[in-house]
């Protein structure tokens, strides 16, 4: 636990001491801010605001955003050779991976919390469906965790950050749009299975419309656990090579 905390703290300090993290956060807030404001203008006097607006946007943005956050976590250690020191410290491989993951998730949570300001504005000017919004945020939080875990997995496989980000983006694209493969084969059963394997399949049809389904939480938690487990095995395999 101590090791996880130490590694997580170090990574978080790394995030917050590098200008890149703030640039990413700034770009992110600009995107959500513009979306929020234009949606606000659009719905004025026409309809209530969409409670899951920001989370819905994030569902797509995370495809690019998650690899950016995670690409350097393990690949940099591999490239700089610090992985060798980490692996000879009295810390299990799982602790390393988990600490790294938690730091990325914590940073993501921080940005997510920043966007709650929009909800705060809404509460002050209208009566938004706050619980629906909270459900959507819960969903996108889990969703983001899963996307970050996938990004981390690819960061573990290579020394090249760009390659890690690239592969993670492709993997996330597949995980997001994988269900469109079902369109090609014209089978609803297969499309259903693919849909339920995709990230959006467990967000768009539940959290986004205000329903918290236990199966979706299990899906995201399961994806996190599996991706981290494989990442640990990948790290472990470096010892054997």
């Amino acid at each position: 636990m101590r090791a996880i905390r130490l590694i997580m703290q170090r990574e978080l300090a790394q995030y917050f001491s590098s200008p890149l993290a703030y640039l990413i956060a700034g770009a992110f807030l600009l995107l959500t801010g513009v979306t929020f404001y234009s949606d606000l203008n659009f719905s004025l006097g026409v309809r209530p605001v969409e409670p899951a607006l920001i989370p819905n946007l994030l569902a797509q943005v995370m495809i690019v955003f998650a690899p950016l956050l995670t690409m350097r976590l393990l690949s940099e250690e591999n490239r700089e050779g610090t992985m060798e020191l980490l692996l000879t410290a009295p810390v299990s491989d799982g602790n390393i991976v988990f600490g790294k993951f938690l730091s990325a998730w914590a940073y993501y949570t921080f940005i997510l919390l920043l966007t709650l300001l929009y909800q705060f504005i809404l509460v002050n000017i209208a009566l938004p469906d706050i619980s629906h919004t909270i459900a959507a945020y819960l969903g996108i939080w889990m969703y983001g965790g899963a996307a970050l875990a996938v990004g981390l997995l690819f960061s573990a496989t290579t020394e090249n950050q760009i390659l890690a980000a690239f592969m993670a983006t492709i993997a996330l694209l597949l995980l997001y749009y994988g269900d469109s493969l079902g369109r090609v084969v014209a089978s609803a059963d297969l499309a259903y299975i693919l849909f339920n394997l995709t990230l959006q399949g467990h967000y768009a049809a539940s959290f986004a419309i205000g329903a918290v389904r236990a199966e979706d939480i299990v899906y995201y938690a399961g994806l996190i656990v599996v991706a981290l487990f494989i990442a640990i095995r990948v790290i472990e395999s470096k010892r054997w090579r």
Binding site: R10, A13, Q14, S17, E80, G81, T82, E84, L85, T88
Partner: peptide
């Protein structure tokens, strides 16, 4: 242990 490449975290 000090590995041959002397790995360091540049941003610390």
């Amino acid at each position: 242990y000090m590995p041959e490449r002397v790995p360091v975290y540049l941003d610390m």
